[in-house]
């Protein structure tokens, strides 16, 4: 490589982002496959087993939400694990029809016991099991970004 090419290469060098990407089909129990990757990545980052379990549970909820509600045409969910020094960020993305974030009601067990519809817990669980959660949704799809600190 010539000197001019080397300097060109230096100019376009970007900070290294350590990511693991996974695309899963919307098939029954495929969320468990994703939790196996989450487990491997979090173990690599030296998360303790309880925190790994919490990431896995939140991931299961995020994926089954996408499976059930997105009505995605491509039938796929994209998952990205972003490794940072002190935290693991998981991005779950579908290309479905999206939803109105403000329309989601916080479930209450006393009401749910008597209600016909006993579901609707996923987002509440994700928010309680992870340290930060961010959701963006439009008619082009939904992206949920959730992070867990290592300690």
């Amino acid at each position: 490589m010539s000197e001019s090419h080397l300097s060109e290469a230096k100019r376009v060098t970007r900070p290294v982002v350590n990511e693991v990407e996974l695309i899963i089909p919307m098939l029954p129990d495929m969320e468990i496959t994703a939790t196996q990757t989450a487990c491997s990545v979090a173990q690599y980052m030296k998360f303790d087993p309880d925190r790994i379990d919490e990431v896995k549970m939140a991931l299961v909820e995020a994926i089954i939400n996408a499976f059930e509600h997105s009505k995605s045409q491509d039938g796929k969910v994209r998952i990205k694990f972003v490794i940072a020094d002190d935290s693991l960020t998981v991005v779950i993305q579908d290309h479905g029809k999206g939803f109105e974030i403000n329309s989601i009601e916080k479930p209450d067990i006393t009401q749910k016991l008597k209600a016909e519809y006993k579901r609707g817990w996923g987002l509440m669980l994700i928010e309680n099991l992870m340290d930060t959660v961010y959701i963006e949704s439009s008619e082009h799809g939904t992206t949920l970004v959730m992070s867990k600190n290592r300690v």
């Binding site: 067990i109 509440m124 669980l125 099991l129």
Partner: peptide, 17 residues
């Protein structure tokens, strides 16, 4: 229950019943 399942039950309020 695993710690996470117990935590989940607590978050959801199942432990009230």
């Amino acid at each position: 229950l695993t710690k996470t399942i117990e935590k989940t039950f607590n978050i959801m309020g199942l432990t009230q019943y």
